[in-house]
């Protein structure tokens, strides 16, 4: 026994190293499975506040381009306003619009932390539970899909970016409504991959890809990107399509969190009918 103690004491450097390394790897494994590290995570309050301070300072440098973007959006909304349509028929009034029931609402949020260089990338937003953000809501920007909310704290939320190995987005081709899946294989933050398009279809570089809306996370017809290259890999039954992502993940600033009002109803219905079949 004493020899054992002596041995450990003599080689304490090595044993301490192994001990600390085990702790570090436990942290890594735990973090990869749960993403629920309340303590040390950029959603926590200290890091969150430092990041919002930093993003406040950085925000000034982008004011010009953001103003331009806002003007364009304002223009779009103005065009949709009732007052910008000419009334041709004064005898018909709508009391209760049953044709257009509202399905999606949008919460605007600011990106306070973002990464594009890792294999699994995360985005932190400055809106959380108190502002109505919940896990599994979609996040989009004015020109494309951004990601899906993973965790929320009271005032911040952590988003799995499209550039994450756990994210697969149900998507379709605009020109023939063919359904596929968009995912990210790493390497380049401007490119993504689309799978499961059958090979008898004709594709062209430049065809656009939009969300299908089948997952109830994103609305239908949100732009994802355009085809930049496609091939059928040897032994595959489907196209492997390379996409130019529309959204520039390296310069994210303002995003919208999408809330689907009928989400719970749809999920419940679908899981019920699935369990009946089995």
């Amino acid at each position: 026994m004493r020899n054992l103690f002596n041995f450990i004491l003599k080689h304490y450097f090595f044993f301490l190293f192994v001990l600390l390394q085990v702790v570090a790897f436990m942290l890594i494994v735990q973090n990869n499975t749960y993403h629920r590290s309340f303590f040390i995570n950029s959603t926590n309050l200290l890091a969150g506040n430092i990041y919002s301070l930093q993003s406040n300072v950085r925000g000034y440098f982008n004011l010009q381009s953001i103003n331009r973007q806002l003007v364009i959006e304002n223009e779009t909304f103005r065009n949709q306003q009732a007052s910008s349509f000419l009334k041709t028929d004064q005898t018909i009034f709508t009391f209760h619009d049953t044709l257009h029931q509202r399905q999606f609402t949008y919460i605007n949020a600011r990106v306070i932390n973002n990464s594009v260089r890792d294999r699994n990338n995360y985005i932190t937003l400055n809106k959380g539970r108190m502002q109505g953000v919940k896990p599994d809501m979609g996040v989009i920007t004015h020109n494309g899909v951004v990601g899906i909310v993973k965790d929320v704290s009271n005032n911040f939320s952590s988003v799995l970016s499209t550039l994450h190995s756990d994210i697969q987005i149900s998507a379709k081709l605009t020109k023939n409504n063919q359904l596929g899946t968009v995912l990210w294989e790493g390497y380049d933050y401007r490119k993504a991959t689309m799978l499961y398009i059958p090979p008898h279809l004709e594709l062209e570089v430049g065809d656009s890809i939009i969300t299908s809306g089948f997952s109830h996370i994103f609305p239908e017809n949100v732009f994802i990107g355009t085809i930049s290259d496609y091939e059928i890999r040897r032994g595959d039954n489907f196209y492997t399509i390379e996409i130019d992502l529309a959204c520039d993940f390296n310069s994210l600033e303002n995003v919208y969190v999408v809330k689907n009002i009928f989400r719970e109803e749809l999920d419940m219905l679908e899981s019920e009918s699935r369990s009946l079949i089995r």
Binding site: F25, M26, I40
Partner: peptide, 22 residues
């Protein structure tokens, strides 16, 4: 660990820096 806190990579930088120190 301190770097990990700010990079959303809990434990990875800690392990790498430990290797270096070893």
């Amino acid at each position: 660990l301190a770097v990990d806190m700010f990079s959303n990579s809990l434990g990875m930088h800690a392990a790498a820096t430990l290797f270096m120190a070893f």
